[in-house]
């Protein structure tokens, strides 16, 4: 949160800046290690540490191993119900996606702002990141679809029982809805995370500015805002999990289209 001249900018949290102010430019591209990259690496470290606890592979699992197996079993189960046995090959990808989004979302909610000069950065609140993930998912769907079914993959756009004269129109509509998938996939996560974090920061600004304006205003503005913030923080934690689940679920459904057609 940047409080420059008493103003609190709720968008500052999304600013990407190179750490230590150093830029790393390779071949004309700026690939500096930014705060965004730092939080990606933190996410990786958290997932890695969490998963290592499940690598004891004991016959009778301990608490940690049971938790890890809960996550893997959850994703494996989802793939099994949505795609069937053929979906097993894609479970590692969907699991990686789910864990990355979930942990990145949750790390973004950490109250790191209490350390001066720090603020949590939500990797998944950036369209670049969610867009790349969505494009990877969509590319896998396309590659798998055409590799398994060839041009027969286009039959996906003509549902069974469509009357002959409706086929051109239905084909166009279905094709459009198919092509819009990567955008909706990437935008959904980006918008959900961004909106939640802006709301939290705006309310936090109300709390701080209310306190600065004196006890009367604080009682009217700051206290209700603070209570609301608690509720919205809980809601945001829920949204973190739901958005990760939705992203993984939709990827599995799209993969199902590519693997089994209709």
């Amino acid at each position: 949160m940047a409080a420059e001249g008493g103003k609190i900018d709720p968008m500052h949290q999304f600013l990407v800046e190179p750490l230590f102010g150093k830029h790393l430019i390779v071949g004309g591209y700026d690939i500096s290690f930014t705060n965004s990259a730092l939080f990606m690496v933190l996410t990786l470290a958290c997932i890695w540490a969490f998963m290592m606890g499940g690598m004891k592979r004991a016959l009778i699992p301990g608490r940690w191993q049971a938790a890890v197996e809960g996550f893997t079993g959850f994703v494996a189960n989802m793939m099994e119900t949505n795609i069937g046995p053929k979906g097993k090959a894609f479970t590692p990808y969907v699991f990686s996606l789910f864990m990355f989004i979930l942990v990145a979302n949750l790390i973004g909610m950490l109250p790191l702002g209490i350390v001066p000069g720090w603020h949590a950065f939500t990797v998944t609140s950036h369209l670049t990141v969610t867009g790349v993930l969505a494009i990877i998912s969509f590319s896998i769907v396309l590659v798998v679809g055409f590799a398994r079914h060839g041009f027969h993959f286009f039959s996906l756009f003509v549902p069974h029982g469509t009357p002959g004269y409706m086929i051109p129109l239905i084909f166009l509509i279905e094709l459009f809805s198919f092509l819009i998938r990567p955008f909706s996939l990437g935008l959904r996560l980006f918008v959900a995370m961004t909106a939640g974090h802006i709301l939290l920061k705006v309310l936090a600004g109300f709390v701080i500015n209310g306190i600065n304006a004196g006890p009367g205003i604080a009682a009217i503005v700051s206290i209700p805002s603070f209570i609301l913030m608690i509720g919205i923080t809980l809601l945001e934690l829920l949204v973190c999990a739901i958005q990760a689940y939705v992203f993984a679920l939709l990827t599995s459904l799209y993969l199902n289209d590519a693997i089994n057609l209709h």
Partner: peptide
């Protein structure tokens, strides 16, 4: 200004997660 850096680091991090965790640990745990 930042797409290159974000995509670069995302691909590295997600690649490590995918190959190290998705393909390395996940099948063993399952």
């Amino acid at each position: 200004a930042t797409y290159a850096s974000q995509i670069f680091w995302l691909l590295i991090v997600f690649g490590v997660i995918f190959f190290g965790i998705g393909y390395g640990m996940f099948p063993k745990i399952q």
